[in-house]
Each structure stands twice: as structure tokens, then as C-alpha cells.
């Protein structure tokens, strides 16, 4: 399949595209497997953001790779041994899709049967994500925040100060594109907001909304140039927001502690347990959305700004 052909292409540009296609195909697979939320995220993140970042990197690192493989035989044997281990592991696995598999009978039924009572939100994935396993999600937001810190620490500081002469922006001349996208960007943002606040009923939530919102900014940046975007979106504000998202999430936890519950116990936030859960979930999803959106924007802008510099120096 795609993955296999990827192993053999030397053209990195094609590889990126194949990786993107692979992500998209797996997103399709996720839909087949009823994992709509996951599919949504994989399509936005795997096929969208990662691909853009990889392409941006390629413009800096060069398109073609060296043909030489490193100890292909050793690598192949390591891989084969690992593969055989895994295949061996499948022998005793419960049959695919079986409703009586341990994974389906232990904890999962609780979520499916009780979440209506406990939390009263149709989308069980959101309930589990935001409440039952809310702390994992908090951890995940922190991971995103860590990545931002990492990327900024690595790429924000230029070796040479930026020259004033603006590089020609690739797509500035396409008038139609600009107009179309000007029309498109607000709806994308609106859609992001819809996904943000409608996550309880349909697939979606903070992450997906964050990614979509970020992609609208990225689209803007691609069409109107990085510097223009940096003027439109104040970077220091974005930075503060990315930290604020984490803090919002964290302070919901503190609030529930102060109200006498354990950390991230939303039930204590209101008189009624279910209302408390709703408040908690909406607020933390907001925190997630803010951090993810700002994180993606920051990462992209930092990468894209670096291109200009590298090109100037190599030229």
C-alpha cells in the first residue's frame, strides 16, 4: 500500500504526499471502524498540519534524499523479528470485532450505559475524553504546550536579524485565490467555533476546532505572506493565549478542588451534578481549543518565518 511505496521513493516531496495520503486513508479506515472523532482528528492533524509542516521543512532541507540505506539487512532483520513477535501475539487475541472480547466487557459498557446518566451528553467519546479520563486530556494539552516551547526554543532565535527587504510572497499575485479565500476564511472560523461548542452532540471538540481554526490562519498566511499575518495576529498575544489555555484547563481542576471535590471533578461545580459536568466540559474544551489553535499557529509561523532566513543565507 502507500506505506510500502513510501519506503522506496527517493523523492521526499512525493514521500510527504504519500504520508499525507496514508493519514487520509487511515482516517477513512477509522470511519469504517466507527471512530468518527478519531477520523476527524487524523484527517485534520495527520493529513493537514503534519503535511504542511513537513513541506515547510522540506523547502529548507532540500527535496531529495541520499540513496544510501543504513545497514538495510540489519534493519530488515530487526523489523522482521519485531513483526514475528507481533504476529505471534495475535494468535491468542480475541477475534476481530467480537462483542465478547475483554476490551468490550470490562470498563467500556460502563461508559456506554452510564454516561447518559452521569454526564448526559450524546457523544460518549467526548464524555470519556473530557470527564472520565479528563486528566489524560490535560496531559495531552501539556504535550502540545511542550512542543510549542520546544519549537520556539529551537527556531525562534535567529542567527542573523531579519533583513527588511520582504521576500516575494508566493501566492500574493493570485487575485482570485485571494478573493475566494477571503470569502472562505470567515466560514472556516465559524465552522471551527461550531465544532468547538457542538462537540457534545456530534464528533468534534476542542482539538478539532483548534486545528481547524489554526488552519484558517495558516491559509491566510500562505496567501498573504507571513509578515502580513504576523501583523494581523499579534504573536505575543498568541503566546500568552497558548499558556492561558493550559491554565484554564488547570484552574477548572483547582476550582473543583476548592469546591470540595477531587481534581477535575466537575460535578461539584454546580448544584446539580449533571449541570456541573456540562460547565466543566465546556470550559475545559475551550481551554483545549485555545491551546491547540494557538499552538499550531505559533508552530507554523515559527517554521515559515525560518524559511525566509534560511533562503536568504543560502542564496
Amino acid at each position: 500500500m502507500t506505506a510500502l511505496s513510501l519506503a522506496f521513493t527517493k523523492d521526499l516531496f512525493a514521500s510527504v504526499m504519500l504520508t499525507g495520503i496514508y493519514s487520509l486513508l487511515s482516517a477513512g479506515f477509522f470511519v469504517l471502524m466507527d471512530a468518527v472523532d478519531v477520523a476527524f482528528t487524523e484527517a485534520a492533524v495527520g493529513a493537514g498540519i503534519s503535511t504542511i509542516l513537513m513541506l515547510t521543512t522540506l523547502t529548507m532541507t532540500g527535496r531529495f534524499e541520499n540513496r544510501k540505506l543504513h545497514h538495510p539487512k540489519i534493519a530488515l532483520s530487526v523489523v522482521i523479528v519485531t513483526g514475528i513477535m507481533l504476529v505471534m501475539g495475535t494468535v491468542d487475541m480475541p477475534a476481530f470485532g467480537s462483542p465478547s472480547a475483554p476490551a468490550q466487557t470490562h470498563v467500556a459498557p460502563y461508559y456506554i450505559q452510564q454516561s447518559a446518566q452521569d454526564i448526559d451528553i450524546p457523544n460518549i467519546v467526548t464524555s470519556v475524553l473530557a470527564s472520565y479520563r479528563g486528566f489524560d486530556t490535560f496531559g495531552e494539552v501539556v504535550v502540545v504546550f511542550t512542543a510549542v516551547i520546544g519549537v520556539l526554543a529551537l527556531l525562534e532565535f535567529a542567527r542573523v536579524e531579519r533583513a527588511d527587504s520582504e521576500k516575494p510572497v508566493p501566492m500574493l499575485q493570485h487575485k482570485i485565490l485571494r478573493i475566494v479565500s477571503k470569502i472562505l476564511i470567515p466560514p472556516i472560523m465559524l465552522f471551527a467555533l461550531y465544532v468547538q461548542f457542538h462537540g457534545e452532540y456530534s464528533p468534534g471538540g476542542g482539538f478539532q476546532a483548534g486545528v481547524i481554526f489554526a488552519s484558517s490562519i495558516i491559509l491566510y498566511a500562505m496567501l498573504f505572506g507571513i509578515e502580513q499575518t504576523r501583523k494581523a495576529v499579534s504573536v505575543p498575544v498568541v503566546k500568552v493565549l497558548s499558556a492561558l489555555g493550559v491554565l484554564i484547563y488547570g484552574s477548572v481542576g483547582i476550582a473543583s478542588m476548592l469546591n470540595g471535590g477531587t481534581y477535575l471533578n466537575y460535578s461539584v461545580l454546580a448544584e446539580n451534578d449533571v449541570t456541573g459536568q456540562h460547565i466543566g466540559i465546556i470550559v475545559i474544551e475551550l481551554g483545549v481549543g485555545i491551546t491547540v489553535a494557538t499552538a499550531m499557529i505559533l508552530i507554523f509561523l515559527t517554521f515559515a518565518r525560518r524559511i525566509g532566513k534560511t533562503e536568504e543565507e543560502t542564496a
Binding site: 504546550f145 516551547i149 500568552v240 492561558l244 481542576g253 481534581y263
Partner: peptide, 21 residues
């Protein structure tokens, strides 16, 4: 009774605050 979580939350929340400072 909150000690176990405070152990992790204190440095965790300190990090974004630093980013604002």
C-alpha cells in the same frame, strides 16, 4: 487529601505561568 495531585499540578501550572512572566 489533595497532596498526590498537588505534587504534579504545582510544577505543571508553573510552566505556563512562566511563559506569561
Amino acid at each position: 487529601q489533595h497532596l498526590p495531585i498537588l505534587q504534579v499540578i504545582i510544577p505543571l501550572l508553573a510552566a505556563p505561568i512562566c511563559f506569561i512572566l
